[in-house]
């Protein structure tokens, strides 16, 4: 897994690549949580490079969603690959996290 973060105004952009499973779950969680400490409001996950996700990866995303929404922010996702989107959909996460084709579209919606 590769992960990079960028802060744009009050949005934390998280760009992640690779496979989100239990092996990387702790690092994935810690990297986002550390970046959230800078006081951003919203989180945008760019999942363009994510080739696989299972319930361990989804659990981390759900946990960050709860944290961000409890503080009045929103969580968005962009560039989800179709195979990965099916897993998101079955988990119910697509009901609470809006998805967009590109980062720019997601940022414009805020």
């Amino acid at each position: 897994m590769n992960i990079s973060t960028q802060i744009r105004q009050d949005v934390l952009i998280v760009r992640v690549e690779g496979e989100l499973d239990m092996h990387v779950a702790d690092e994935f969680r810690q990297r986002i949580d550390t970046a959230l400490e800078s006081g951003v409001r919203h989180v945008l996950l760019n999942l363009k490079g994510v080739t696989f996700v299972d319930s361990s990866g989804l659990g981390v995303i759900l946990g960050r969603y709860k944290k961000v929404s409890a503080a009045g922010g929103r969580m968005l996702a962009a560039n989800i690959r179709p195979q990965v989107a099916r897993v998101f959909e079955l988990s119910g996460l697509l009901k609470i996290i809006r998805t967009f084709g590109t980062e720019a579209e997601a940022l414009n919606s805020l």
């Binding site: 969680r29 299972d54 319930s55 361990s56 989804l58 659990g59 981390v60 759900l62 946990g63 897993v87 079955l90 988990s91």
Partner: peptide
């Protein structure tokens, strides 16, 4: 609590 409890749901689906 950090996990979704979806493991068996995915296996079943």
């Amino acid at each position: 609590p950090e996990r979704m409890g979806l493991g068996f749901v995915f296996m079943e689906s």
